[in-house]
Design a protein around this nucleic acid. Structure first.
Lengths: 136, 136
DNA sequence: CTTTATGTAACACATTCTATTACAATTAAG
DNA sequence: CTTAATTGTAATAGAATGTGTTACATAAAG
């Protein structure tokens, strides 16, 4: 991952978890993260589809968590924004006539999957609530 | 990581470990990976600086491992090509006037480091030799 | 001295990421 | 029922990163 999506999503959810009950505006969150509001809304749209937040349109609109922060793990957040494996991409067309090239991607798949799962397991042990508590 | 550097480096080192003793040409390796030879040489240059390979110039030149494949761990390879944290980048200027924005990057640093270390630990348990053996 | 390699700079092209503009749709409130 | 405030999203631009290519200097073999 060489993007900021996990950091942004976690920042958003931390703000929502911290200010429970109230509807929070994307513009406000953008001010806290210091990025463009449209990017925040795009990520909120993804977080909404993933079931973490609910939104309300129009005046007095905004966003809230859809469930307690204790029921959201960092693993779930990671998986919704993840778009690359930990060890990166494979080369697309290794040479099938080479004994190594022939099998390399099968072996890499195996390795990459094992590493990805270990990261997910580690993140499963951490809830959004745990993370937010560190700020107090 | 959304690049192919780890895959490329591991492919290169696997070829060298598999065909021990002989000097292998970058052009040949490029043929196995099916990428441009210059990219292979650039990566070999990095692997050379990191102490994994030695090179010989001129006619009959090429590359060899500088030490037994049993003495190279996937963790070491990962660390030499890694250029981003597992969980990605942080946002650069979160708002210091916001209680969350103020501390978010310190908390993220903590989390990101923990996750990165867990990946490295997992990779420390795997040698290049182990990896290459899977092809036979 | 010719051939075959590595080493690397410079540039070109491709992909991915982030920011911005614009505006439709929705809701609250006077 | 009109206005202001807000989400939702498309379209585009701009920035950053990643990959490929050309060119050529340097080195070694024979």
């Amino acid at each position: 991952m060489s993007n900021t999506r996990f950091s942004t999503a976690l920042h958003i959810l931390t703000l929502l978890a911290d200010k429970d009950e109230e509807w929070m505006r994307s513009e406000w969150m953008a001010g806290s993260i210091n990025i463009n509001p449209v990017i925040v809304r795009k990520e909120l749209s993804v977080l909404n589809e993933a079931g973490f937040v609910i939104s309300r349109k129009g005046k007095k609109g905004g966003f809230k968590l859809s469930k307690p922060s204790s029921e959201i793990t960092l693993a779930e957040i990671y998986l919704t924004v993840k778009n690359a494996d930990v060890l990166g991409k494979r080369n697309q067309n290794p040479n099938p006539k080479c004994p190594i090239g022939k099998d390399i991607n099968k072996q890499l798949d195996h390795l990459f999957m094992e590493i990805d799962h270990s990261v997910e397991d580690k993140l499963k042990g951490k809830t959004l609530k745990n993370f937010v508590e560190q700020f107090h």
